[in-house]
Every structure is written in structure tokens, then in C-alpha cells.
Design a protein around this nucleic acid. Structure first.
Lengths: 349, 349
DNA sequence: TGTTAGCACTTATTAGGGGAGAGTGCTAAA
DNA sequence: TTTAGCACTCTCCCCTAATAAGTGCTAACA
């Protein structure tokens, strides 16, 4: 593995090929590169270099006597190359855009749903790629309040509000004898004992109680504790998706609708997206996944730029951009980073 | 307007043309019709009839010397023609499918979200068109319970559960002095007074109270009543969409992606869909809207089959199928009807 | 040894022509 | 009113030729 040892000039050529192809999705020729990037060697030399790059697996030809196209390895090289600069430089234009958006989002600070909807929409419409966002994992947030509502004989609706103001509800099958009054007391107990504690820890704690007190108390306690546990068990499910239509007209897909269909099918299935997100570490500032690097088959000819948003340095969730491998990475990286920051700031008030 | 006065034979030809075109999207020729439908006149006669039908606006030619294609008017004729039979006949196949689905859905009876998700998914995957469903309008359902939760100084989260077990929440800006205890009392008051009453009526009633008591009480009451009113104000927003990818490969769209993009854009914007649904009366058993008949421009080259599901004869919401005008109407109508019935039955327990 | 110029070769793309096929419209006869 | 016949129109497909882009290779060059 590794970038072998490419000399400076070779790197410049490789960079030029990738950049050119991102600009215009056509096989890149040696003469074109030479002229556009002002190499003062002749096209034959570039040709030799490109041939070497092909041997190294950075480029390939769609057919003999055609120009070259970048492989995933080339994209990876390109991204590694521009990455640093992306983080340093800040375009004035982006800054302004983010500023105006900040005001808009600040107003939605207390309504997570609208906040994330608006964020995903904006991210997609400004980049013209597919925008994704994942709400903070309810499990990891702190309990603000829980309420139980008896429903239809033998059901209980648990309403859980976390410290982000996100309201979740679960319908739990319970035994019929339990009354609303008892449920109120139960909720009161939970609220008093656990408000402000992380939800997954509460569940843990309840589990320990269950084990311990089972021996001393009757079945009732067991049942009640089970209700509580169920009430506080959440799988991640809130994914926001925006702008599929933005990627539909890209030349990368316009040739065959099948690819687009695959994507449409994939993004309809929230579980798949959550699996995708789960596979992305929330540690790195910005994670870039190119084509084959993707752990999930469904995204193998797409690229993903993801970044976590945080609160007090703790990652809460992710926002991401999905587009063709032939993506404008500079723009994408800059925007994803700014959007993640924006969310971080907005949530930290 | 009206179907002019077509004689039997002409009707049969028109029917045949539409049916043929639905089967295979190619211009339909006179000889083809004659042979396939066993007309015992020669093709020239059919040709004359088709020419007449063109004059009446039922058919058109993509170019001289090509076969004919149906216009919206022809589809309308066709649908009116088959409609009766669709309602009478019941294919054994569909019956079986619905039966097996019934069991599946019955288990989800108490979880509206899953129920509607599953319904829309099934409807789309069995018909291969785009499936839509609209949750019961919260406004028109009865209040089961309301809870207020103080959040972050000056916000109140109102959690409203209706008699369908649908949980809605609203974040309301309130004045900071109000305490959780006061909110609890307020909720208690509302629950005692209004449980089981229609939510829009409650709002109405609160409005009257507000007007009447404003004169006698202080600002506080006004504020509190306003919180209640806000808590109970819902715009319709829960639309379930499934199977966009199902319509992507249809020959009707494969020629130009732009059409598909339009659709993708439209269905992403929930408000547009709600506007669409709002324009569909919930009185008719089954509403069929073909192409230009559509009140909304975005759907002008699509057809929509919609049907309300009910509870005790009161329409609660709609499910619908969206597909190309060249749709398999028989199948679509049958399934939409069965699915609406299925929902009606499931909700009525 | 790396670089350049030149040239033959490959392949995709485009345009044009011709024939086949499908289907119509019209006319005249039944 | 229906039919048979026929000329006409248009699309579609195949074939060919020309064009253009770009490569790979070789031999000369610095």
C-alpha cells in the first residue's frame, strides 16, 4: 500500500488529471494536461508519466487510445492532497453564506426537528449533493422528563423528552390492571431519580435494580421495571435526507437510471443509512470515504463526506454529504465542516 | 363536455387502444387492434373510426403515419368504463395477498407510525407505483391526553396523544415564571375537561373561553389559554411516501430524467403533497385523477388513485397511488380500494 | 538517461444514405 | 357503409465513411 514514491512532477500530473476530470467528466488527455497546467515538457512526456501512473493503479483507460480516468486510489491521493488546504483556507463566500444561515438556524434552536430539516436542506441545496443528518442518539443524551400515558386497556405510551428537547414516544404492552395514577407515580419517581442522567446509564441502573430487587419483591415490581426499561430503550432512527433530486441530473448517473434507482432504494431504507452512519467513527473531525473504501456495498460508487457535530467536545451525531466519486471535494469538505461547526455552535447556544 | 355520443363499436375501439397502450407503450395501429380484439371488419374501417376518435380528441398521432396514442380524455373514458367492474370483481390473488397482509398489519394496530409505514411500503411494492398515505388529521381526532413539560427557562413542550395513539408534540414559547407544577395542573384541567372531545372543537371552545374570561381575569389566564390553544393547533404534516424507485424504471420516464427529477423534487416537499391531498375530497370512495385533471401542475403528467380510510364512516385520511398516466388502472384501483378497506378495518379493530 | 518529434494505430462519435417495416389517408369499387 | 388497393410518410436500423482525439512506439536529440 501507500503512495509508492511518486516524484513531484508525477504528483502534479496526477493531481491535474483528477482535478480536470472532476471539472469535466471526460477522459483526460496528455496534451490537455500539458497545456492547461502549463507543464513545459511535451505531451509525450506527460504521456509516459500517465502510463506509469496507470501501472501504479492510479489511472485507467476506458479503452485503448482514450484519455485516462482516475481510479479510487487517485481520488484518495487527490483528497489527501487538498485536505489540509481545505481546512486552512476559508472562502469569503462560504463564510457569508454560513453567517446568514446561522441567524436562520438560531431561531430553530429549540426545535430539533426543524433545525435538522433546515440544516439538511441547506447543505444539499448549496452543494447540490445529497445531504444527510443524524439526530443525536437518544440513548446518549440526558433525560429531561418522562411521562406515561395509559392507552386502550393494556398499552402504555411512554413519552420521553431529552435535554435537547427531542420528544420520543414508545408504545408498550403492559398489564391491564395498572392505572394512570400508578403510572404518574412511576413517572414522578423516574423524573426525580434520574433527571439529567444519560438515558443509557439509567437503563443500566434499572437493570441492576431489577436483578437485585427481584428476589425481595413480587412480580409487580418486575413488570414495572420492565416497562421503564422498555420506555428508555431507543434505536437510532431519525435520519434526515434531502436533495436526492440534486444528484439526479449529474452526468455520473444520467447514463443509466439503474444506478440512481439503487441509490433511491438505499436511501428509502432508513436502516441502511443508519448502518452506514454507524460504520463512521465520530472521532475524526472529517471523515471522507471514497467509492470502494465504503463498508457498504450500496455506496460503492459514491463518496461520502461526514463530520460530527458536538456538544462540549462530545460527539452527538453526524452530518454528511453523499455524491458521486467525481465530487467537488474542496467545496464539499469546506461546507460539511462549516455545517458541522454551525450545528455545534447552535446546540451549544 | 361529455363523451359525445360514441356508438358501441367506436367505444370498443377506443377501449382497445387504451388497453393496448397500457400494456405496451407504443403507438397503436389499426391492424393490430383489429386482429387482437377480433373485430370482424377490416383495418381500414378501424382506421376510419380511429380518425373520428382523433377528431373528438380521444387520440393523437405522434407523427403522420404513426399509430395512435390515447389522450387524457381517452384515459378518462377508459377508467370510467372499467371502474364499475373493478369494484365488483375481486381477483382471488388480490384477496389472498390482502388476507396475509391483514395479519401483519393487525399486529401494528397500536403503533400508527409502523402501521402506516408498512401499509405504504406494501402498497407500493405490490403495485410498483409510488405509494402515499396521510395520517388521520390530528385536528379531527379526539384528545386522549395532553401533557406539558417545562423546558429550558421559557419554553413549554406540549405532548398531545389522540385516540389513535398518535403522539404529537409542540414547542411553545411561554413566559419564564410558569412552573412545572402549574403546568401539571393545567394539563390535568384540560384532560378532565376535554378528554374524548375532538381537538379542533376543544380549540374552538378555548377560544370562546378566552374571549369571555379575558374581561374578568388577569393577563395570566390569557397567557395560559394561549398556550393551550397553541398546544392543540396542528397542521397536517405526516405523509408517508414509499417506492419512488419503483416508478423510476418505467418506460414513461426513462426517456428523460428531468421528469423523474421533477417528481423527486415534488415528493420531497411534504407541503406540496399535503396540498395535493387537501385538494382531494374525502367523500368519494375512490378518486381518480388523470394528468391534466390534476389541480397541481407538478402532477400533470401523472395519475393518482386515492381512497379514504374511515372510522365509523367518518373519513380519517387518505391513501393513494401515484403512477404514470399509462397506469394499470384496474390493478391500481383494486389495490387502493382493498388497502383503504384494510386500514378501515384495522383501525376499527 | 530523460525528453522530444513524428507517425501509425485505435476507438468513439457523428453524419449521411438506403432499405425495411409499420401504418396512415385516400380513392374507387362492392 | 365497408372494403381492397395503393401511394405516401415517417421511424428505425444498419452500414459506411469521415473526423477527431488520443495513445504507443520508435528514433533522434540534448
Amino acid at each position: 500500500m501507500g503512495n509508492v514514491n511518486l516524484d513531484e512532477r508525477t504528483k502534479k500530473v496526477l493531481y491535474a488529471v483528477v482535478e480536470s476530470y472532476i471539472e469535466k467528466p471526460e477522459p483526460v488527455g496528455s496534451r490537455y494536461i500539458m497545456k492547461k497546467y502549463g507543464f513545459d515538457v511535451c505531451s509525450a512526456t506527460i504521456r509516459n508519466i500517465m502510463s506509469d501512473l496507470e501501472d501504479e493503479g492510479f489511472l485507467y483507460q476506458p479503452h485503448t487510445s482514450a484519455g485516462r480516468l482516475p481510479t479510487d486510489k487517485a481520488y484518495r491521493f487527490y483528497v489527501d492532497y487538498i485536505f489540509e488546504q481545505c481546512l486552512k483556507n476559508q472562502s469569503e463566500e462560504i463564510k457569508k453564506y454560513i453567517e446568514s444561515l446561522t441567524k436562520k438556524l438560531r431561531k430553530l434552536r429549540n426545535n430539533m426537528n426543524s433545525l435538522f430539516l433546515e440544516t439538511t436542506n441547506s447543505l444539499s441545496s448549496v452543494t447540490r449533493y445529497l445531504g444527510l443528518a443524524l439526530l443525536p442518539e437518544t440513548d446518549k443524551t440526558a433525560l429531561h422528563r418522562v411521562d406515561f400515558i395509559k392507552f386502550k386497556e393494556d398499552y402504555v405510551i411512554a413519552v420521553v423528552v431529552n435535554d435537547k428537547g427531542i420528544v420520543k414516544n414508545k408504545i408498550i404492552k403492559a398489564y391491564p390492571e395498572i392505572t394512570q395514577q400508578e403510572l404518574n407515580k412511576l413517572a414522578e419517581f423516574l423524573n426525580e431519580t434520574y433527571q439529567g442522567k444519560a438515558i443509557d446509564e439509567i437503563r443500566e441502573d434499572l437493570f441492576i435494580r431489577l436483578k437485585r430487587e427481584k428476589l425481595f419483591w413480587d412480580k409487580l415490581i418486575e413488570k414495572i421495571l420492565k416497562i421503564c426499561q422498555q420506555a428508555l430503550y431507543f434505536t437510532r432512527e431519525n435520519v434526515y435526507i434531502s436533495g436526492f433530486y440534486n444528484i439526479m441530473h449529474l452526468p455520473d448517473f444520467s447514463s443509466d437510471i439503474e444506478k440512481l434507482r439503487e441509490i433511491a432504494k438505499t436511501i428509502q431504507d432508513r436502516h441502511l443509512l443508519i448502518k452506514l452512519f454507524d460504520s463512521i467513527s465520530e472521532e475524526e473531525e472529517i471523515k471522507i470515504i471514497i467509492g470502494e473504501e465504503n463498508p457498504m456495498e450500496e455506496f460503492r460508487n459514491l463518496s461520502i463526506i461526514a463530520s460530527p457535530y458536538r456538544e462540549k467536545n462530545k460527539p452527538l451525531g453526524l452530518i454528511a454529504l453523499v455524491g458521486p466519486k467525481r465530487m467537488d471535494y474542496t467545496k464539499a469538505i469546506m461546507f460539511v465542516r462549516e455545517f458541522a461547526n454551525l450545528l455545534t455552535n447552535t446546540l451549544s447556544k
